[in-house]
Design a protein around this nucleic acid. Structure first.
Length: 412
RNA sequence: GCGUCUGUCGUCAAGCGGUUAAGACCUCGGAUUGUGGUUCCGAUAUGCAUGGGUUCGAAUCCCAUCAGACGCCCCA
């Protein structure tokens, strides 16, 4: 036998028995997002590398070590590691800034990140997400969070934690960053290797280090004082307060997590995550926030925006496995031609029908019927002569002779 | 990139240096040439991820490689 070719590390087949769950995720997304006026957009799975370098940020791990990049015709192309940059690109390129704000978009599809696979993490994975452009008010942040919560609720996922934080604007964040660096400077040599590199690259990321010795350092009162201090400027604080009051009014429960930073460079002000305790260590199902400068950074008109993305595999692993769906009928017949004709007629009426293409023995056909269908439609010589079909209910064993044109009513 | 653990039929597995490599499920065939889901029989790994080694003897011990799972980093 020829050598078999295996699936690529970090990728997964979505097998027929699992696909129903995906249909649920997708149809609920369409249903719920439509109610809020969001329209689906589909962007290419590869884009110019520069889009991600400038969009996601070239200090991020996603851009630095996780992109699938390849050259073609002297262009550097990259499989999208996330879809916000692509949607923003499309927003700009298609002149959507001219549309009356807000512009509300949602998407779903595969994303690619070269990471070590583990529970809840693949190299090709799927996200569903929303983006709203053109509204700077906290009402937009609130709507987007509410939408996430309601989408999760529609899937039956209610006991999830919403965590919230504000990163402030570039101005107040810079001040905060330098304060953190200042207070940690004496401890620099005691920090772990990762933290030492984060110190320069992204001081905010220092705060949730899991190394014990670092935790101890961060727990010191003078350092905690800086971490816990409300560094954000008045405007940013007002925005955050407004968001919280909307959420309170809408009865969306949340907790403030000052250490919530998020790893993409484009966020400002609101950031949030939704977490589950049933996911192992990769416990975030949803992550998002506000990114007011991204559109401008990618060459568009200055346009405020908020959005989030959810990992569909992670959602799926929280959902119960649906029962496999049975056929309406399985035709048991010794005459394939007649079975074919009957099957086609019933399919035209919207029924799910199969019959035995291999022309096996009667008992085998019936056995198969009992495994895959609600009803066995017995079409033998006697039935063909009399123009009827014996319809057998496979769960009760009841069997009745039915005229061919009455079968559809009997099956429902 | 680093760490820990794991690779025996399509699936779940027993086996722990000497076996003919259990068993179960699935699949297929038969009992049963028009009445199933129960039952009963039968079929299905010259091979235990791959390559080396140790040994009289290896699925079992050792090494390497590959693959997978989980964790770190990071993220959905």
């Amino acid at each position: 036998m020829a050598k078999i070719i295996n699936i690529i590390k970090g990728t997964k087949d979505i097998l027929p028995q699992d696909v129903e769950q995906w249909h649920i995720l997708e149809s609920k997304a369409l249903e719920i997002f439509s109610k809020y006026g969001y329209k689906e957009i589909r962007t290419p799975i590869f884009e110019a590398t520069e889009l991600f370098a400038r969009g996601v940020g070239d200090t991020t791990d996603i851009v630095n070590k996780e992109m699938y990049t390849f050259e073609k015709s002297e262009r550097s192309l990259t499989l999208r590691p996330e879809n916000t940059a692509g949607v923003v690109r499309s927003f700009i390129e298609n002149g959507m800034a001219r549309l009356s704000a807000p512009v509300k978009l949602w998407y779903k599809g595969p994303m690619f990140r070269y990471e070590r696979p583990q529970a809840g993490r693949q190299r090709q994975f799927h996200q569903v997400g929303v983006e709203m452009f053109g509204i700077k008010n906290a009402a937009a942040d609130a709507e987007v969070i509410l939408l996430a919560v309601n989408y999760l609720k529609s899937l039956g996922l209610c006991d999830l934690e919403v965590e919230l934080n504000s990163l402030g604007c570039p101005t107040c964040r810079e001040a905060y960053k330098s304060k953190i660096k200042e207070v940690l400077k004496p401890e620099f040599d005691n920090l772990c290797e990762d933290c030492q590199s984060r110190y320069e690259k992204n001081p905010l990321r220092l705060l949730d280090c899991k190394v014990e010795s670092c935790k101890e350092i961060f727990a010191k009162p003078e350092i905690q004082k800086v971490i816990q201090s409300d560094f954000i400027c008045e405007e940013c604080a007002a925005h955050f307060e407004e968001l919280k009051s909307y959420l309170d009014k809408l009865n969306v429960k949340y907790t403030i997590n000052k250490l919530l930073v998020r790893g993409l460079d484009y966020y400002n002000r609101t950031v949030f995550e939704i977490k589950s305790n049933n996911l192992g260590s990769q416990n975030a199902v949803c992550g998002g926030g506000r990114y007011d400068s991204l559109v401008r950074n990618l060459g568009g008109e200055d346009t405020p925006a908020v959005g989030w993305a959810m990992g569909m595999e992670r959602l799926n692993s929280l959902l119960p496995v649906p029962e496999p769906e049975l056929l309406d009928g399985y035709i048991v017949s010794t005459s394939p031609a007649d079975a074919f004709e009957l099957a086609e007629n019933l399919r035209t009426l919207g029924l799910k029908i199969e019959f035995d293409l291999a022309n096996k023995k009667f008992t085998k056909q019936l056995e198969k019927a009992s495994k895959v269908a609600k009803y066995a439609l017995i079409l033998g010589e006697d039935e063909i002569k009399s123009g009827t079909v014996s319809v057998k209910n496979l769960s009760t064993g009841e069997q009745v002779a039915v005229a061919k044109n009455k079968i559809a009513e009997t099956l429902k």
